[in-house]
Amino acid sequence: MILTLVETTPAGEAIEVSREALTFARSLAAEGGGVPVDAVVVGTPSPELVATLASYGVREVHALTGEAFDAFSGAAWAAGILAVRGSSVVVMAAGTPRGNEVMAHVAARAGVAMAANVLSFSGLSPFVVTRQVVGGSALEEMRLSDRPAVFTVAGHAVEAVPAETPGAATVVEQTPEIAAADLVARVVSAEEPEPDLSGSLKSARVVVGAGRGAGSSDGFADLLELTSLLDASLGVSRVVTSLGWRPHHEQVGQTGSRISPDLYIPCGISGAIQHWAGCSTAKNILAINTDPDAPMVTKATYAVIGDLHEVVPAINEEIRRRRSGS
């Protein structure tokens, strides 16, 4: 069987990248002649979560419960997963911070290799996966000959698609014994997470994107005006959130939201593979960039070559001019 760690939102729903991982698991299971796909969740799953897991073809849901799982500990989660592993030939998760951390613990404890950020597999014997390295600028083919094969699936490498035939998603609650040593490094306090404000970004028809080219936290006025003129949402690159110019919920990409608007307008965004992962399904892309060779420009449908601080105000002006009918 294939065992997939499914992470949940604070509201108890399966996160999108975990549903993608389940989709990946199913294609692997099909290749293997119909091996069952099981899920591991932490805490008692809600009926909605169980229904989602069923729709993704999950056979059994192993729910890890008990005090040891009240607060996050990578070692405890890994111990729990290995306790319910049974005869799994594959143990996998989404390539989130938690997913990579827990799978590294699983691999270290089981004495096997671990492949982070896998995009695809190409054959079962030997089992060869292709994963992102060098920040996505290169790919690595890796042979996972140990069992269980342990890996994580890069965010948005595949699309989350429910199964044709749902699974039983039988819930099996388990409270494995967790050693004290595995609970030493555990979260002792957590401030309220930011509420998920990314809903309007994910569903927007038009998204204006902003990257390092915005220049500073003060460089967003024209971009925000364009956003409002188009009744759009603002999406940004990771550089913008890492530098604290804009909040994380606006981030588009592998570690942010995946968007599929009718029109995406990335301004001053180079188009790194992790950003592309979040916007590749946009119907039209209009890139605004000083560099005609930037990957975002070459991959776009349309482009304007130039400084966004000149181009965007001119576009705003033109929209206002046409609206006023002059």
Binding site: L286, Y302, V304
Partner: peptide, 10 residues
Amino acid sequence: VQILGKGADA
């Protein structure tokens, strides 16, 4: 890619 123009003139 279809280049719509350069700078503000676009």
